[in-house]
Design a protein around this nucleic acid. Structure first.
Lengths: 123, 123
DNA sequence: CCGTATCCATGCCGATACTG
DNA sequence: CAGTATCGGCATGGATACGG
């Protein structure tokens, strides 16, 4: 189970005591999931909103990542049956429990992305 | 720059205002980086320690992930020139700034990995 | 003990075209 | 507007053998 995208490594493969950190990364660590969750923190978004926010992502990938987040119960998908179609994505109550983590990652990224700590720059 | 492993998505590709969350995920989001950082929180580890802790990871991948963490300045690699060789890995001071995030991810994983929130189980 | 080198299968992901 | 379908390149990562 939960092997869909290759998943993140588990210590003691198949062990129930596998690192809890990996479980979390399995939920939020997808290539575009960080961006998606980050923007959902600030409110409901439509499919086209994400396409505008992240021009780099393809329809295919956006759909796949949103579906996985939905599967994991962190994102809610509300379909309005009308023409033209309208779909709204939002954090579920469960997904909201991720907000402290996303916020911390946002803060950390803001603090350190400008400062270069990579080895080559410290030589 | 920083395109080594495909990286995580950036909103407004090439924009400096790209999501800070993605920068963070780029550092800690590698397939095995979560496990590695998780265990380094509790102290210095040797190469062979990781192999014991994570039987699923190959030497190749372990090396690659450790090198990337070293490149990013979050992990320090101490080589003892002796026979048999001995190499110790530890968090740098910079790497320690990630501890709050790793800890939160650990807590979240522990709290929710047992409870099933995935869609199929909520039907 | 701690790696590197090489080969190669898998599948991720982008590009493109098409549908309700 | 919000997707699905299909194809294919190529990076990711496993297996194995070898080096300091």
């Amino acid at each position: 189970m939960r092997n869909r995208k290759g998943g993140f490594g588990e210590c003691s493969a198949g062990n129930d005591q596998a690192c809890p950190v990996e479980y979390t990364l399995d939920v939020i660590g997808g290539k575009w999931k960080g961006v998606i969750l980050y923007h959902l923190m600030y409110g409901t978004k439509r499919f086209s909103d994400f396409r505008r926010i992240c021009p780099g992502i393809t329809q295919r990938m956006l759909t796949l990542q949103l579906r996985e987040l939905e599967e994991d119960g962190v994102v809610h998908r509300e379909v309005y049956r009308q023409v033209p179609p309208k779909v709204e994505y939002s954090l579920t109550e469960f997904g909201s429990t991720l907000i402290p983590i996303i916020s911390l990652m946002k803060d950390w990224g803001e603090n350190y992305k400008t400062k270069q700590h990579s080895k080559e720059n410290r030589l």
